[in-house]
C-alpha cells in the first residue's frame, strides 16, 4: 500500500518523535509513505483568523501539489473511489486539509477565488480529488487490528494507558472520521491490540488548550490540568496521543502546570506510533524515545520488567456485578470496561 504523506511543520522538529516512529511503524506494517514534495504549512488555527482567502490558498497549494503528485499519475496512491490519498499524522493539518477540500466543494465562490490565487503560482486544485486521512484512521481501517496484532512481538502487558484524542481528529464531523465525535474507541482498541491495559479516560476528547498556552496561559494550564488529573485519577501510566499539539501542551507544560497549581503530575505523553513500535519489538531509541520532557523511563521499565508475562494475555476485567443496589444499564462494551 502506498500513501501520500504530509508530515506538517511540527513533525519536522518538535514532534520529530512522531515522524520517526510513524516511519518505523510503516516499515514494519509494510505500507509506503510518499512525502509530498515541498509542502508548506497548513496555517494551523491562525491564518483563518486573519484572512480567509489567503488561508484557503495556503492550504490549497498543498492540495494542488498533492493532486499533481499523487492523483495525476495514480502510481498506486488512489483510493477505491479514485481519490488520491494523503495521510496527515497531525490533527490540525488533517482538519485544515480535509475541511478546506470540503468547503471548496460546497462554496463555489471560494473555490473560484482560491483557484484564481493558486493560478498566480501556476497551480490549480479540483476539490474532491484528494482524500485527506489521519494516520490513526488509516491504520485502523486499512491495516486493521488483526494485521497489527500479527506484528506484536512484545506486548505492552501491564502498562496502563489513557487514550487521548483531543479535538481536531474527531470534530467537526466532516465524514470519514472516527466512530464518535465525543467517545470514539479506535485508539483504545488499538492500544489493547498492543497488549496494554486500557484505562477509562472520560476527558479523552477534551481540549488540550491549543494555542492558548501562547495567548492566555492560565486558560491553557487549567485545561491541561483537568486532563492530567483525570488520567491520574484513573491510574494511567502514560497518556497516548495522536496529535503533536496535544503532546506538546501536555508534555512541555506539565512542569509549569505543576508549579501553577501546586500539583505533582508525572505522566509521560507518548505518540501512539511509539507504543506500536515498542510492541513490535523495535528499540525505544529508534522510536524517538528520550525526546519527551516528562520522561517515559518508568513506563519503559514497567513493560520490560516483566518479560515472563509477555506471552500472557492482558487481564480482562469485566464490569463488576454488584449484588446490592440497582442494575446498571447494559452497554455494548460492558465486558471491556475497566473497573
Amino acid at each position: 500500500m502506498k500513501y501520500g504523506y504530509y508530515p506538517g511543520c511540527s513533525l519536522e522538529r518538535n514532534a520529530a518523535a512522531y515522524d520517526i516512529s510513524t516511519r518505523a511503524v510503516a516499515r514494519t506494517l509494510g505500507f509506503e509513505l510518499d512525502e509530498l514534495d515541498d509542502w508548506n504549512c497548513c496555517g494551523a488555527t491562525e491564518y483563518i483568523a486573519i484572512n480567509k482567502l489567503a488561508a484557503y490558498s495556503l492550504i490549497g497549494r498543498n492540495l494542488a501539489l498533492a493532486q499533481q503528485q499523487f492523483h495525476a499519475n495514480g502510481n498506486g496512491h488512489l483510493a477505491a473511489d479514485g481519490r488520491a490519498q494523503l495521510i496527515a499524522p497531525c490533527s490540525a493539518c488533517f482538519l485544515n486539509l480535509r475541511k478546506a477540500d470540503r468547503y471548496l466543494q460546497e462554496d463555489a465562490k471560494l473555490r473560484d477565488t482560491t483557484n484564481e490565487a493558486l493560478a498566480a503560482g501556476g497551480l490549480h486544485y479540483d476539490p474532491g480529488t484528494v482524500f485527506v486521512r489521519h494516520l490513526l484512521e488509516m491504520i485502523v481501517n486499512d491495516v486493521g487490528y488483526d494485521e497489527v496484532k500479527r506484528h506484536v512481538t512484545k506486548p505492552l502487558n501491564g502498562l496502563r494507558v489513557a487514550s487521548y484524542y483531543g479535538c481536531l481528529l474527531v470534530r467537526p464531523r466532516l465524514g470519514g472520521e472516527l466512530s464518535d465525535a465525543e467517545y470514539p474507541t479506535e485508539l483504545e482498541s488499538l492500544t489493547k491490540t498492543l497488549g496494554a491495559e486500557v484505562v477509562d479516560f472520560p476527558l479523552k476528547t477534551h481540549c488540550c488548550g491549543g494555542h492558548m498556552t501562547q495567548i492566555s496561559a492560565e486558560v491553557a494550564y487549567e485545561l491541561i490540568r483537568r486532563l492530567l488529573q483525570n488520567a491520574t485519577e484513573y491510574r494511567a501510566d502514560v497518556i497516548v496521543t495522536i496529535c503533536p499539539m496535544c503532546q506538546l501542551n501536555l508534555d512541555a507544560y506539565q512542569t509549569r502546570v505543576n508549579q501553577h497549581f501546586g500539583t505533582n503530575f508525572n505522566l509521560p505523553i507518548l505518540y501512539f506510533t511509539q507504543l506500536m513500535g515498542l510492541a513490535f519489538g523495535l528499540e525505544p531509541k529508534t522510536l524517538g524515545f528520550g525526546k519527551e520532557i516528562v520522561s517515559a523511563e518508568n513506563a519503559l521499565i514497567k513493560i520490560q520488567r516483566s518479560p515472563e508475562s509477555a506471552a500472557a494475555p492482558a487481564p480482562s476485567r469485566p464490569r463488576k456485578k454488584k449484588e446490592e443496589g440497582l442494575p446498571m444499564p447494559r452497554m455494548p462494551e460492558d465486558e471491556e470496561v475497566t473497573a
Binding site: 464518535d180 465525543e182 467517545y183 472520560p202 446498571m328 444499564p329 452497554m331 455494548p332
Partner: peptide
Amino acid sequence: ARRIPHYGYGRLA
C-alpha cells in the same frame, strides 16, 4: 440515551 455519550448514561451510575 446511550447515544449521547456526554450525558453519561450507562457510564455514570
